[in-house]
């Protein structure tokens, strides 16, 4: 292995450590942190890591800042973007349940995000609560919404307005969610059992 190749290999390993080990409260790292650790051409290293992760069914996801905070040139945007590792494909229901997700929480999150997408990404908490109460007991609705906010899937401002959170932008394909909501057959469901 030449010196250049060895340097790239070392930096790809370092990038994997930076992206996978949770260093802050929120997973992943900012672009500027990668630049500081990997050098100016860190995007090249990120691409190499992404192709390595592809073999494992994983991918590097770049999450730009919320659109309201966007500005500056591309380099500045990347500096402020969050880089993290996500699955490349979807997660089987059994795995989601095994990792602590209740089926009714997943359903509530699907309904909330679809509703927010239909309202240009913004709705009052009251509206969302009423929507979810048609499916779940109201005490569960509040617990679920608080949990989604805490996990970063939703953002709630001081006026109790809910918007899509950073984690939704990182993990959820809203287009696929919308398509699936509109097209899923009312008879079909691959998920059974444990709702409670």
């Amino acid at each position: 292995m030449s010196g250049g190749e060895a340097s790239y290999a070392r930096r790809v390993k370092r990038a994997a450590q930076l992206l996978l080990f949770q260093r802050h409260r929120t997973p992943g790292v900012k672009g500027w942190e990668l630049r500081k650790s990997l050098g100016k051409n860190y995007m090249k290293i990120v691409k190499l890591l992404d192709s390595e992760l592809e073999r494992l069914g994983l991918q590097v996801k770049i999450v730009p800042e919320a659109s309201g905070e966007a500005g500056g040139d591309e380099e500045a945007k990347l500096d402020r973007a969050r880089f993290l590792v996500t699955l490349r494909g979807s997660l089987p229901a059994t795995d989601a349940q095994a990792s602590g997700w209740r089926i009714d929480d997943l359903a509530a999150l699907a309904a909330t995000l679809a509703y927010l997408a239909s309202r240009q990404g913004k709705a009052s908490r009251g509206e969302v609560e009423r929507l979810l109460s048609s499916k779940l007991p109201s005490w569960r609705v509040n617990i679920a919404l608080d949990r989604f906010v805490r996990l970063g899937y939703l953002h709630e401002d001081e006026n109790e307005v809910l918007t899509v959170g950073w984690r939704t932008r990182a993990e959820v394909d809203l287009e696929a969610l919308a398509e699936s909501l509109l097209t899923i057959s009312e008879e079909s469901s691959e998920i059974g059992g444990r709702e409670g």
């Binding site: 699955l87 494909g89 997660l91 359903a107 699907a110 993990e171 699936s180």
Partner: peptide, 20 residues
């Protein structure tokens, strides 16, 4: 849609974060 169907809608669009 039922609760399991809505959950399925979410799972089809969800690529969760991997972290250690």
């Amino acid at each position: 849609l039922t609760i399991p169907q809505l959950a399925e809608v979410f799972l089809k669009a969800w690529k969760p974060t991997v972290k250690i």
